[in-house]
Design a protein around this nucleic acid. Sequence first.
RNA 1: GCCGCAUUCGUCUAGAGGCCUAGGACACAGCCCUCUCAAGGCUGAGAUCAUCGGUUCGAAUCCGAUAUGCGGUACCA
Length: 502
Amino acid sequence: MSDIRVRIAPSPTGPLHLGTARTALFNFLFARHTGGTFIFRLEDTDQARSTEAYELDIINGLHWLGIRWDEGPGVAGGTEHGTYGPYRQMQRLERYTEAATRLLAEDKAYYCYCTPEELDAERKRQEAAHESPRYSGHCARLTASERVAFEAAGRLPVVRFRIPPNRTIAFDDIIRGHVEIETSALGGDLVIVRSDGTPLYHFTVAVDDAAMAISHVIRGEDHLSNTPKHILLFEALGSAIPQFAHLPLILNADRSKMSKRKSQTAVAAYRAEGFIPEAFVNYLALLGWSTGTEEEVLSSAELIERFELSAVNSSGAVFSRDRLEWLNGQWIRRLSATDLIDRLRPFVQAELDAGRIDWLPADDELRALLPVVQERLPTLAAVGELIGFLFVDNLDPDVAALVPKRWDAATTAAALTAARQTIAEVGRVAWEADEIEPPLRQLVEDRGWKAGDLFMAIRVAVTGRTATPPLFDMMVALGYERTLARLDRAIEKLAAQAGPTP
RNA sequence: GCCGCAUUCGUCUAGAGGCCUAGGACACAGCCCUCUCAAGGCUGAGAUCAUCGGUUCGAAUCCGAUAUGCGGUACCA
């Protein structure tokens, strides 16, 4: 194993987000491609918003995508593996305290007694004066007696990290190249520990990345501007500075950073809609990265083999559901029959639970349908819409839909009656698509009809829909008795409709 | 406001100075196939490579400025 170590560090303050999944995937692909180590760390210091339910959703979601880590919690709330643990920040509190104490002792940080209200007032004053908001350094040089006075007044201090003035922080981002930022643009001395003693993000990320010997920090572009703070922290901590690679953002249709307000961001929601992990991973990998070839349908193994961090794009990418659906169809078509049936089962069950079908078809029934179903599924959840009509007791076709454009109700009723007879005769001998079709075509020819008209009338009578998989296959799947029963029912409805007409 | 990043068809992208009258994919349109719907095949439309200036014999590709977009600028992550 190489000494490349990368991590994904989500915070369990919401369900697994598409962007987190993509960042995780790129870290994973990079680690697997280079033979490095992939680490999962939970940034749960925002105790007000973190929950174990979200932790579960994140871990399950990543596992679903086939993303596995070498170090970190195996399951939500469960045990961890790896020698750099713990991997939950709330269990690393002593380490942050220790690091903060060290920075304090070395005067790289100091106690600040300014209240949120004072800070807020300062910020407002600066905005009014058209200055950039920054901490003034009010508490940067407090005397011992001033400190005692604040303590006596009951003020609880935060810890601020000293940002050196007038320095240029430069780093070479693997994706973006050389980046330079002046420390003066960093907003002044940075709070690293809250007044309640809990550490803040910029601090924990540096402490943990250093402690876990992270070699490459691969994360979203939204952290690019924060990177100088982290570099300064690494320096102050006496740690090696990792390499950085800032991924382009995934965008809403309006090109703003993808958010749940404007887009569906929860990975679990896509899973529930019947997207399969092969397609999802394939899609995500190609959002912001490409192989440089014209191949688009790539397995995880192929992605791992070809992934190059330096080939990642630097501009944001709009999420395209259309493209995801297309890839999903591609991958569904590549599934074996057994595999597809396994994956379809929960979606068929969901149809039953929702009351859209009346019973659960057996695996063999599904298997028989696969040749005409597989290429018609954009998602697994589309199965109900596609063939659900086969598994309902009472079908009530719409009379208007029953009557083809060129026909009226009486004509349709007569045609269906003739067709019913033909179907009944043939079906008694051989209930197969190839046997049913020729005599019906003969009937069409004898009567001078259009095949499309008759077949559409039969289709609606038998399926209740105007668009279905091949009609005769559907009739075979439905069964002899039920097909005739549905034809009878349609003929009845048409007769009732045609009757009153003069 | 300040700082940073970005800018090739509607979207995802190929493109590392001449192979580019810019290629592929999704979506879209037409045709073929066809009982409908898909799938598949073919064809088409769609990009003054953000703009302006520079370097060069030659620029989508290099440099600069401008514009626009996005991100960051918390006792959130």
